[in-house]
Nucleic acid binder design. Structure first.
Length: 376
RNA sequence: GGGGAGAUACCAAAGUGGCCAACUGGGGCAGACUGUAAAUCUGCUGGCGUACGCCUUCGUAGGUUCGAAUCCUGCUCUCCCCA
């Protein structure tokens, strides 16, 4: 057993739990900072651990496969050792790149052939070699190779795509069960439930994935262009279909408000590039709302970045100073904003856990979401 | 004192009779960003208007012309060379 539920909100599907891995225990609901290429952009591990309180981070199979390549990661003794991160890690399979690098790939029954965005070289991911690759990278949780369909896909295409994802999933599972971890610790495998915005397809996908009896289940193909309400609707459709004793991971989501709404609908794990990417682009998330720190209105605001913030950057730097750094193009600007946002995201899920345990999550969430969506 | 070059919007810099409210870059202002091809991308940047548009602009004062940032004259200022 890798998941233990420890609290359930009375008024919603929100719950608290623990995920046990050989690199440590993860408290859920949790947000996982994204470290695609083996780096959470702009953030030292020390800060990730001590200031942001990250419990698990992501890597990406496609990106790591291309650079530095499996040979180097293997020689290093796996990704944990290569990047000096001793806490849990999860790798995405590259299914999202099937979607985001659509112009550079070709999908067949066998797998997905890519043109490298770096040098144009040709590579093929099959369900089998993708599992092997993730074995070699050595993440604690590895993901199925899937096709992530756009949010506006037609039903007919979404169905065809889902069927392929399901056949790939079966091959992933078979291969996963026939192979062993390379570095002496257990790896868990999560199927990805696709089906676009169509309840019948989501149901079909969930039932199929659950029948394969895996360690946890991911919900993919959301936050890829569909209306936010559709995303919430799909999570609600899936709720009764996924086992309650396994963790649920909503891939690629999202804003702090999206995360609280996801938690209310029973999601345990989230990841998103938003805190780092938007941070680099001058956007800060706070309990009071969202700030575009590059705006002139902050030029003479000498108050702290976030008076309610938990990060040392919140206690150290002022809005006026951070705006100055952004306007001047200083790299410290991106670092401070990323640090703040990640610390904020982790504090959002921490607060959520506290309120679930206290039993007042649903009412607290409604008030919090309204503020989080405000533009300051 | 003599000779030469030049003055264009916040800055730099194109434009040398109508296609010019004026290329382009910087700066400024705003927006986007959701399993990271992103320390990226987009829009606006004389005034009013959502917009067709209207009004005021290319040192300054006049002039030529149907029409001028562009041609002519005076003036002011700047830079370079010689003495």
């Amino acid at each position: 057993m890798i998941f233990e539920k420890i609290a359930q909100d009375a008024q919603s599907n929100a719950r608290c739990g623990l995920i046990y891995t050989n690199h440590g225990v993860i408290e859920t609901p949790i947000f996982m900072p994204v470290g695609t290429i083996g780096s959470v952009k702009g953030i030292y591990h020390k800060d990730l651990k001590e200031d942001i309180n990250a419990q698990i981070i992501l890597g990406n199979t496609y990106h790591l496969f291309l650079r530095p390549g499996l040979n180097i990661i293997n020689k290093a003794g796996g990704l944990h050792k290569f990047i000096s991160w001793d806490k849990p890690m999860l790798t995405d399979s590259g299914g999202f790149q099937v979607f985001s690098l659509a112009a550079n790939r070709k999908i067949t029954e066998e797998g997905c052939t890519f043109r490298s965005h770096i040098d144009g070289s040709k590579h093929t991911f099959t369900p089998e070699n993708n599992v092997d690759t993730q074995r070699m990278i050595g993440a604690d949780i590895i993901m199925a190779l899937d096709e992530c369909t756009p949010g506006d896909a037609e039903h007919s295409y979404a169905l065809k795509s889902l069927k392929l994802t399901q056949r790939w999933l079966e091959r992933c599972v078979t291969h996963f069960d026939n192979t062993q971890p390379l570095y002496g610790y257990k790896q868990f495998f999560f199927p990805i439930v696709q089906g676009c915005v169509y309840p019948d397809l989501r149901k079909m996908a969930a039932e199929h994935a659950v029948s394969l009896n895996r360690d946890g289940y991911a919900i993919g193909g959301l936050s890829v262009g569909e209306p936010t309400e559709k995303m919430y609707e799909m999570i609600e459709v899936l709720h009764p279909l996924l086992p309650l004793d396994k963790p649920r991971y909503l891939m690629g989501v999202g804003t702090p408000a999206n995360i609280l709404e996801g938690i209310a609908r029973g999601i345990d794990m989230f990841d998103c590039v938003m805190p780092t990417r938007n941070g680099r682009n001058g956007m800060l998330f706070t309990w009071e709302g969202m700030i575009n720190i590059r705006n002139k209105k902050w030029a003479e605001d000498f108050s702290l970045i976030d008076s309610l913030g938990t990060s040392f950057v919140d206690r150290t730097y002022t809005k006026a100073y951070l705006r100055h750094l952004f306007v001047a193009g200083e790299m410290l600007a991106a670092q401070i904003a990323s640090e703040h946002n990640l610390a904020f995201y982790l504090s959002v899920v921490k607060e959520a856990r506290m309120h679930i345990k206290a039993g007042d999550f649903a009412t607290w969430k409604t008030v919090a979401v309204k503020k989080l969506e405000t533009k300051l």
